[in-house]
């Protein structure tokens, strides 16, 4: 292929970065790795890359800080953040800072590749983030007021236990609402659910005790 796709990988863990490079090369992408946010800022060219996989937890400048700085100069590079498993608050922050999606480590390879491909498409579509899938909006309509509340809590990055405390219901009940939500929204994972909610403009619920 003459028109190759270049993917940046920013991760401080040598093995994770090296293995991602190997995998993406095997998938036919061009890859360039950076061991830190600083290295990326110094040697990377956001305008020439097609997509970027960014680790959020790094020494020095972390992924969120990098996102913040990038948003100003290069809004066209779609960035997918890599978070620890179940680190929803971090993922939510990253999405608010303009990441197109997030994947949880250790990730399912197919999920990751699908995420990259859809990020590339969104780049091709010039990041038309305003175009929300009408199906998502339709599904949102089906939620009960309580389910909607739980969703807003989840978007705020709270655990079942915290959601329960906020809403004055048991974590078990939250779990039931949550699985209903996933079903109605046809979300395969919590990550997907949160992404759809953010895309659809659902605002995270404020905390009743401490501000988020």
């Amino acid at each position: 292929m003459s028109d190759r796709t270049l993917i940046y990988v920013v991760d401080d863990d040598d093995a994770v970065r090296d293995s991602l490079e190997a995998l993406l090369l095997a998938e036919g992408f061009d890859v360039q790795g950076f061991g830190s946010a600083e290295a990326f800022l110094a040697d990377g060219d956001p305008a020439s890359a097609d997509c970027c996989l960014l680790d959020v937890r790094m020494p020095g400048k972390d992924g969120l800080t990098l996102l913040q700085e990038l948003d100003r100069d290069t809004a066209t590079l779609p960035i997918i953040v890599m978070t620890g498993h179940g680190d929803v608050p971090m993922a939510v922050k990253a999405m608010k800072l303009g990441a197109v999606d997030f994947i949880e480590k250790p990730f399912d390879t197919n999920v990751m590749l699908t995420t990259i491909r859809s990020a590339l498409q969104s780049k091709a579509a010039n990041r038309l983030r305003s175009k929300v899938d009408p199906a998502i909006l339709e599904n949102l309509e089906k939620l009960t007021p309580r389910e909607r509340e739980v969703l807003e809590q989840l978007v705020a990055g709270r655990s079942n236990k915290e959601v329960g405390r906020q809403l004055g219901i048991s974590p078990r009940t939250v779990e039931i609402h949550r699985s209903r939500l996933m079903e109605k929204m046809t979300a395969g994972s919590l990550a997907e659910l949160v992404r759809m909610a953010i895309d659809a403009g659902i605002e995270p619920a404020a905390s009743t005790s401490t501000p988020t």
Binding site: D13, A15, V16, D18, S19, L20, A22, L23, L25, A26, G84, H85, K105, P106, F107, T109
Partner: peptide, 15 residues
Amino acid sequence: LNQPLTAIINYLEAC
């Protein structure tokens, strides 16, 4: 633990 596990999956999937 997720770091090495992620790397293992990636290497093997690449193979």
